[in-house]
Amino acid sequence: MPGAAGSLHDVDNLPYGVFTLPGEAPRIGARIGDYLLDLAPVAASDLMEIAHALEQPSLNRLMACPPDQLAGLRAWLVDLLTTDAGRDTAEPFLLPIDSVRMQLPIEVGDYVDFYASEHHATNVGMIFRPDGDALLPNWKHLPVGYHGRAGTVVASGTAVRRPSGQRRGEGAPEFGPSTRLDIEAELGFVVGRGSALGDRVPASAFTEHVFGVVGLNDWSARDIQAWEYVPLGPFLGKSFATSISTWVTPLAALDAAWTALPGQDPTPLPYLEPATARGLDIAVEIELNGEVIARPPYAAMYWSPAQMLAHLTVNGASIRTGDLFGSGTISGADAATQGSLLELTWGWREPVGRDGRLALEDGDTVVLRYTAPGTLGGRIALGEVTGQILPASM
């Protein structure tokens, strides 16, 4: 496809998203270069069994399809976009990216967020417990997480209104807009095929249940969070908005990105399958008001995606198509690779960027970008995540 070869959106990528055109119902497309391929009509013209799943206003029905159908769809797409006959068929259904409006790609079932970066957890511990142990006793034995709010997961490009809530005050708590609004650069994993209540999903079955990945920004009101989180953890400081990319990158596009974990000591319990756990070599870039302020590496994460899923279901909790779980903040070993303002400013003490930010201010725009090794030897781009901060409601 002209303009796609060698780009971040070549045929080794092919993410899926949901789009609309003026006056038309939302449906599913795949990105190739700077174009979107309108999948439903071209699949119908080829009498593909999966065509009806491509007419839907979310990816959920497609994600629930059997693995052989999904593999067949991807192989068909590659053929369509790389052969002369295929390109003749596809060309009438190619739309410039800037001519379509992208939507939230999935109907989110449950949302769980983890805390899988040792560097992030250590930094947070050092900031808040300078005289104690940076990591709490359970941290290296299980992937710590919390259950979030699925109804406030929004598509990239959706503005985020500054939340209000209780904050610690002098003596009594006070109420008002958050003054410590933060970002958390994360990777999100989207469930394709669910499981039955009471069944565990072993780490080895990760690829049987997870359809793909999204970029994710878990916006955080740190002052609200600090006052509320003891003893039950995050609540209103997190539930006001979580942004995800409008493109879902299928796991098949990440075949070249799997890598060894940095190492786990002590060895986790057997159900976490530590001998086979793998991480992902994904580079993240955080841009604040047009300036790159950090580049966190996902390859530095302590807990693997498969271990998160295994722990999420080890008590028999079921998963459903459209469930989303986040990695937690992605942070590396040095200041230039930290994935939150809390860390980059070291507890709101050291301003970052040309604007001298400690926390997000009204009007600020944050963009998260992600790239990974592609199977053709170059790199592919995962969906980016953008959000602008609006003033609190009065």
Rank of each mutant, 00 (worst) to 15 (best):
M126Y: 04
Y115S: 14
L73T: 00
A134L: 06
L54D: 04
L39G: 04
L37M: 13
D131E: 13
D131R: 14
L94G: 03
H141F: 10
D79Y: 08
G145C: 15
A134F: 07
H120Y: 07
C65K: 12
V112W: 11
H119V: 01
T83I: 05
D34F: 01
D98F: 12
S99D: 12
Y115P: 00
P57F: 00
W139R: 14
Q69N: 07
Y35M: 10
G33W: 10
A116G: 08
L135Y: 04
L54W: 15
V144N: 07
G145F: 15
L94K: 15
P143C: 02
M102Y: 02
S45R: 15
R101K: 11
L94D: 02
R129G: 09
L104I: 06
T152G: 08
L37F: 02
T82I: 12
P41R: 02
T82S: 06
P143L: 01
D131P: 02
L95E: 10
P137E: 12
D84T: 04
N138I: 10
E91Q: 14
P66W: 07
L80T: 00
H52S: 14
A43L: 06
Y146V: 09
A75E: 06
R61K: 10
A71H: 01
E118I: 05
S99K: 13
Y111R: 09
L136R: 07
K140C: 13
N60H: 11
I106A: 14
L36R: 03
T152Q: 09
L95D: 10
I106S: 14
R87A: 09
A134I: 04
Y111T: 00
Q103C: 06
H141R: 15
A43K: 06
Q56V: 06
S45F: 09
H147Q: 10
L81S: 02
D133F: 01
